[in-house]
Design a protein around this nucleic acid. Structure first.
Length: 503
DNA sequence: ATGTGC
């Protein structure tokens, strides 16, 4: 056997550098995959991740794939990739957690106000009372003042953050203006389609727990989801200062960053879609790439595509209201501990969703899986919004030790389908992290950085060391010309799912 | 990611 043939060489060696932080990955049968990342970052791409990127690029109807610096192995497609198709929708390259997103709440509190550890402990307690973490956790005591019954549930998954929904749930309705999308319509761009699809879903067995899932509104869930209290440090250059002003970021003040998605409801919808489409594929005898059973798809215009788009929109509406509810509850918690605190939403933006955008002058579904939309100032989609001149905020979580970042897109984002990464990206698998990392080291390190947590033991598979070097990831984004820094966020306390780590 | 899996 000829071991030097291209097919047997490691995929990583096929990456061709095109700049200090850009490369291409040829696929043999299509135009190449665009890769963003310095050489150090490109070395972090494992073979499985690159194979998934190639499979995704070669899949039917796909016209473009971008691999971001935070890319790692996913299901069906890598986490940290963008996939464009004008003709097909792909549930895998959206992900199981439909509309998993970031949001940032700016509080009018100086950093000094939370310097005292007792104050931070009180805040952690007040927030945890209102916004549960962990699988299956529904609303806790303090959130019960905003009950989510079946009727409100049906309304919020079809309307998203409408004024009526916000009013009923005690969410400031003006926050809807600071959302990438505050609501999602059905496949035919009507709300009626969603109502009809929901009625059909509610007759199905896997949706019999709908009312329970609605009570999860205002909860974080587990895994990499978190809430984190930050101090804002705006960059000194004029452009960053102007952007910060437009975004409502306050230098030196406290802010709260949240990461979560559509919880059990989104999971029900996504897993139902995988099952439905996998069954169809085996019925139709269409082969899927080995170990990529989640790279199923539906051609636009088919009933299957319509159902998927409707389900994605229902899940996305839940995730949207979930984030706004969390922010309302976090603000309420701050007001309980520090009376008179005011808060305003900076932005809410997803990194697991397909959006219909204009790509190369034609409409296409841009699937961002662990990737964040990045429209720079002047982009046609931002016309008429407060972000028209600056570009919209990009919220990039790093880790509680090294901080997170608020960025804004540059013209160069066009090379990456107007997308950037969604964070640092895993470098150690969860099992691997638990095996090689040391609990005491992690806890001591956070303590040395004066970052408090609700967890007695920080989950090892979520430790900063389980993720890529955030500075190198940011360097990649900046050097590739995708985006610039507006502010750094320095963590002061973090809320994670402690149910596994503390047992 | 997930009323989680070993």
């Amino acid at each position: 056997m000829n071991t030097s043939s291209p097919e047997s060489r490691p995929l990583r060696s096929r990456l061709k550098s095109t700049g200090e932080a850009t490369a291409i990955l040829p696929t043999e049968t299509t135009s190449p995959i665009t890769v963003i990342g310095t050489e150090a970052i490109r070395d972090t791409f494992d073979e499985g991740c690159l194979q998934q990127a190639i499979n995704s690029r070669r899949a039917p109807g796909v016209t473009e794939v971008v691999l971001n610096p935070d890319a790692h192995l996913g299901y069906g497609a890598p986490v940290g990739c963008v996939m464009v198709s004008p003709t097909h929708v792909y549930p895998g390259p959206v992900g199981v957690d439909i509309k998993c997103s970031m949001s940032l709440l700016q509080l009018d509190l100086p950093a000094d106000a939370i310097e005292d550890r007792k104050t931070r402990r009180a805040l952690i307690s007040a927030i945890c009372q209102r916004t549960p973490t962990g699988a299956g956790r529904g609303q806790r005591s303090a959130a019960k003042s905003r009950p989510v019954n079946r009727t409100v549930g049906k309304q919020l998954v079809t309307e998203g953050a409408s004024v009526a929904v916000c009013d009923q749930l005690g969410i400031p309705s003006e926050w809807a203006e600071c959302c990438e999308d505050s609501f999602h319509l059905g496949h035919d761009e009507t709300r009626d389609a969603l109502a009809m699809r929901l009625d059909r879903l509610l007759e199905q067995r896997h949706m019999s727990n709908f009312s329970d899932k609605m009570t999860q509104l205002g909860s974080y869930g587990g895994g990499n989801h978190f809430g984190e209290c930050e101090v804002v440090d705006v960059a000194k250059d004029d452009r960053a200062q102007r952007a910060a002003q437009t975004f409502g970021l306050q230098d030196g003040n406290v802010a709260f960053l949240s990461h979560c998605g559509s919880r059990g409801f989104g999971h029900n919808l996504a897993s139902g879609q995988f099952k439905t489409l996998q069954d169809k594929f085996s019925q139709w005898g269409i082969p899927l790439p080995a170990q990529d059973r989640q790279l199923v798809y539906a051609p636009l215009g088919t009933p299957e595509a319509n159902d998927y788009l409707d389900d994605m929109a229902l899940g996305a509406n839940f995730a949207t209201v979930n984030h706004l509810m969390i922010n309302a509850l976090v603000l309420e918690a701050f007001q309980e501990v520090i009376p008179g605190t005011q808060g305003s939403l900076v932005y809410f933006i997803s990194h697991n969703i397909a959006r219909k955008e204009i790509v190369n002058n034609q409409p296409a579904w841009v699937h961002r899986k662990g990737a964040t939309r990045a429209f720079p100032g002047g982009h046609h989609s931002l016309r008429g919004t407060r972000y028209a001149e600056t570009g919209h905020p990009i919220l990039l979580p790093g880790n509680p030790r090294d901080g997170s970042a608020v960025m804004v897109a540059d013209e160069g984002a066009a090379q990456a389908c107007f997308s950037v990464n969604h964070g640092a990206g895993r470098i150690l698998g969860r099992r691997h992290a638990k095996r090689v990392l040391d609990q005491a080291t992690i806890d001591t390190e956070l303590d040395q950085h004066d970052v408090l947590s609700n967890c007695r033991q920080y989950p090892m598979d979520e430790a900063p060391a389980a993720y890529k070097d955030f500075e190198e990831v940011l360097r990649s984004v900046k050097m590739a010309g995708l985006a610039s820094e507006v502010a750094r966020l320095k963590a002061r306390f973090v809320i994670k799912d402690s149910s596994k780590a503390d047992d």
